[in-house]
Design a protein around this nucleic acid. Structure first.
Lengths: 229, 229
DNA sequence: CGGCGCCTTGAACCAAGTCAAGCTCTGTGG
DNA sequence: CCACAGAGCTTGACTTGGTTCAAGGCGCCG
C-alpha cells in the first residue's frame, strides 16, 4: 500500500506533445498538485474490472504501477480496446458523467483514485482547472483520431505503428509488453494469429528482436518508420 | 448572403443524447446566444477548402446550408473522412490551437463564422462557457469512439450503421445523401465498389430503396438495426 | 513432471479489394 | 431538341490479405 505522502507528491504526467487546446500553456500536470486534492491509493488484481461501461464516472485514476486496458464490447462479443494506459497515465475521463468504456487491470496494478466531485468543486472556484480538464479531454480526442487513422491501415502498418507508439511512450527501443497478443489484436482490429505472424516477419527481416514473447526490441527504427505508413 | 438578423438569432444545435460531461445540464445551444457573440455569414463553393490540417484554429463554423467533410490524408494519399457535418452542426473545434484535420465544403454551403478569440475572451469572464466548449470537445470524443467501433465491423455492418446514423441525424427514413460514394467509402474505410455493391444488396433484400443514387429510403428499420451490430 | 495458458505456424478459405467494362445522369453546345 | 462528353455509379471477374481452423511448441507454476 502506498503512503499518504506518496499520494500528496504525485503529479499527473501529460503526453509531451499535447496539442494544447484553447488552454493556457500551463501543463495539466499541475492540475493535481493542489493541496486540496488528495487521492486514495488502491490496488487491483490481474484482469480485475476497475469500472464498467455505463457506470457513473465518479473517479479519476492515476496509474502508479502496471497497465490498464480501456475497451468496449459489441453485442456479439467482439471487443475493441480503445486505449492502453501505462504507469504515470491518468484515465477515467471519457468526458461524460457515465463511463463510455470499461476499464480492467491487465496485470496487478497500483493506482491513486481522485474523487470527481472534489475536482468539480475545485473547478467551480477555479476556471483554470476546468480548462485543464478540458485539455485532457482534448488529448483523448486526439488519441482517438490517431486510432481511427491506424484502423484504415494494413495489418503490418498497424502493428508497426503500435510498436513505435509503445516505444515512444516508454522512451526506449526495448519494450516490455504488459498485454497479451489477444489484447493487441483487439486494439488493432486484427486477430492474434495476424499479430503473431507479423511479429515473426518483422523479426526475420531484422527490424525487431523478440527475446521473449512479451519483450520486443526495435532494431531498425528508420525502416520501421517507413513501414508505419 | 445572409442578413445580419439571421446571424443574431442563430443558435447552435446540439445532438440530443450528448453524454453531458462534467457539465451543467444547460445545453450548449445556449452557448452562442450571447449578444456579445456575433458571427459573420460566409459561403464556400463545392469542394472548396475551409481550412487545412495544421492551420491555426481561429474560427468556429456553424452550418446554415449544405454539408462539410472533415478529413485527414496519409502520406500515400489514403484519405480518412472522420466526420460529416450537416446543416445546423458546428465544426472547427478539434480541441487544439491548430486544426488536426482539414475541412471542405461537399457542395455549396453557407456558414456562420465565429472568431475563436471572441469566445476565449468571453470564456475568461464566464466559466460556464468553458464548460460548454469542453462539452463540445467531449461530444467529438464520443463521436470518434463510435467511429472506432464502426471500423472494426464488417462492410455490411458499417454501411448499415452509416445509413442508420444519417437517418437519425436528418430525423427521417428518407435520406438525401450530400456526399459521393467515394466520400462514404473514405468515411467507412471501404472502397466505392463495396459501398455500391452493399447498397444494391440491401435494396434487393427490400431493406432500403434507392430511388436515385443520392437518395436512400430505409424500408425495414428493425432488420437494419439487426444488421448494424 | 504434467497441465494449462499463451504463442506460433501451416493450410484452406473468404470478404473485400482490384481491375475492367459499361451504364446513367447532367450539363453544354450545336 | 438532340448529341455527346464527363463525372459518378454499378456490376462482373479475378486476386489477395487477413481470418479461420487446426496442430503443435514453449514456458511457467504447482
Amino acid at each position: 500500500m502506498l503512503t499518504r505522502n506518496a499520494t500528496r507528491t504525485s503529479q499527473f504526467q501529460q503526453p509531451k506533445s499535447l496539442p494544447s487546446p484553447w488552454l493556457s500553456p500551463v501543463g495539466a500536470h499541475v492540475l493535481f498538485s493542489s493541496p486540496e486534492l488528495v487521492g486514495t491509493p488502491m490496488s487491483y488484481g490481474r484482469n480485475e474490472e476497475i469500472y464498467g461501461e455505463g457506470e457513473p464516472a465518479d473517479y479519476l485514476y492515476k496509474i502508479v504501477r502496471g497497465a490498464v486496458r480501456i475497451y468496449r464490447v459489441l453485442d456479439d462479443g467482439r471487443r475493441q480496446i480503445s486505449a492502453f494506459y501505462l504507469s504515470g497515465d491518468v484515465f477515467g475521463m471519457e468526458g461524460g458523467e457515465e463511463h463510455a468504456c470499461s476499464a480492467e487491470a491487465i496485470g496487478d496494478i497500483d493506482v491513486i483514485v481522485f474523487k470527481r466531485s472534489t475536482l468539480v468543486a475545485l473547478a467551480n472556484r477555479d476556471g483554470e482547472i476546468v480548462r485543464q480538464m478540458w485539455g485532457m479531454t482534448a488529448w483523448e480526442l486526439h488519441r482517438a483520431q490517431e486510432h481511427i487513422l491506424l484502423l484504415i491501415k494494413s495489418a503490418q502498418e498497424r502493428v508497426v505503428s503500435f510498436l513505435l507508439e509503445m516505444s515512444d511512450r516508454v522512451e526506449s527501443n526495448e519494450i516490455e509488453l504488459p498485454m497479451s497478443r489477444q489484447d493487441i489484436a483487439d486494439h488493432l482490429g486484427l486477430t492474434i494469429e495476424t499479430i503473431s505472424r507479423t511479429f515473426s516477419q518483422l523479426e526475420s527481416g531484422a527490424l525487431i528482436g523478440i527475446p521473449t514473447s512479451r519483450r520486443v526490441v526495435l532494431r531498425n527504427r528508420a525502416a520501421l518508420d517507413r513501414l508505419a505508413a
